[in-house]
Amino acid sequence: MTSLEIEPNTILVRYNVEKEKSMSPAEAAEELYPKDELIRPIAEAIFEGEEDDVVDGLQKAIDAGKDPIALIDDALMVGMGVVSKLYDEGVIFLPNVMMSADAMLEGIEFCKSKSSTAPVAKGKVVCHVAEGDVHDIGKSIVVALLRANGFDVVDLGRDVPVDEVVEAVKAEKPMMLTGTALMTTTMFAFKAVNDRLLEAGIKIPFQCGGGAVNQDFVSQYELGVYGEEAADAPKMAQAILEGKDLDALKKQFHTH
């Protein structure tokens, strides 16, 4: 190497170092855990992403007389709420959310197996990857974040034919549809889905994002709302729950 050397601070700024929160994730979570001694271990296990500990905690709570289905909202979602809040605040990162979501799903299945009644979700969302496109990591993140925020997700997978998307929307009657695509050549399927839904008289928000998808493209069809980040999916679903219509969603999420 030549003798060139620099003082990096004169040419770049590590904003992430400067802005890092002073509180550690564990300290931040500590402040948010519920006080109930049966519920708290479950919430902690969700935060830690420890599936076995989640199930152990649930079993103890059920043995102590708690209703399995009520535990979904009262314990699992509370724990996941801590995770979502700290993710939104930038205290924890996505892999923590993914591992917590895995643990939560395991917990929900356990609760369902212990009861004859079905849980009630905040709302249902159908998710898919565009026809012709097999790149699904973005969709996997969207699904995990929606579930982490208490939404029931029907995951159609990847490379989903337009017909199948439309049929699923008719059958499931979701509050929102999401579509992800990596390639410019496959994202055109979103327009076809939009047109087919409108033909069927269905007007639900259709959140589109991923890879080459941009706001200009999504703005070209009536039901389309651009999702720039995977984390926009639960925010959009929440906004719909709060009564926002398509125009209001576009106003909120079309920021470019």
Partner: peptide, 14 residues
Amino acid sequence: TAMFIAGGLLDKNL
């Protein structure tokens, strides 16, 4: 994929 998920300095994904 890892690099894109990691993103910019302020992203919180990886």
